[in-house]
């Protein structure tokens, strides 16, 4: 490959958790590595780096995606929300609160991805029943296997958010 390819960096400009971020990155840098290594936002985890586990899930323009499969360069001009951006004024998001109450976490390594995925699952309208939640939360592996508690937490949060919006 050419030497120019190696030395190329891209200027990117995006919003992360509501804050504008500008950076100059190697094209090969994934959004996940950008968040973790450059911005020190280590909530999103690297469980597989192949889109097979969901621990790196973040919202891009409000949609949940595996940040290991997005280049930081591709995220330029987009809005990114990570688990660190969910709490407002120090108050936990209803999904975060429900995860604590339902004991929907153990080791915690998948939890950031689960919670972002759950926020999206509810927003998409896929929290209508336990069965629907189980299917639409299946992109987030949990080896401690909190699955029943995770489904319960998503349902609990969805009902509370519905009630708050009513």
């Amino acid at each position: 490959m050419s030497a120019s390819a190696r030395s190329q960096t891209i200027d990117i400009s995006l919003t992360v958790n509501g804050r504008p971020v500008q950076a100059s990155v190697e094209p090969r840098l994934s959004l996940l590595d950008f968040l973790r290594e450059e911005l020190d936002l280590t909530g999103a985890k690297k469980g597989c780096n192949r889109g097979e586990c969901g621990t790196c899930t973040v919202l891009v323009d409000g949609r949940r995606v595996n940040s290991c499969l997005v280049l930081a360069a591709s995220a330029s001009n987009h809005e990114v929300v990570t688990v660190e951006g969910l709490a407002k004024d120090g108050e936990l998001h209803p999904v975060q609160q429900a995860f604590i109450e339902a004991d929907a976490l153990q080791c915690g390594f998948c939890t950031s991805g689960q919670i972002i995925s759950a926020v999206a699952c509810i927003e998409e309208g896929h929290a209508g029943s336990t069965e629907e939640i189980r299917e639409w939360m299946s992109g987030n592996l949990c080896r401690c296997s909190c699955y029943p508690q995770i489904a319960e937490a998503v349902e609990m949060a969805a009902r509370r958010m519905e009630a708050d919006n009513a």
């Binding site: 889109g51 969901g54 949940r64 995925s117």
Partner: peptide, 9 residues
């Protein structure tokens, strides 16, 4: 075909 996250990408 894939997880909800992957299907968004």
């Amino acid at each position: 075909s894939a997880s909800a996250q992957l299907r968004n990408l």
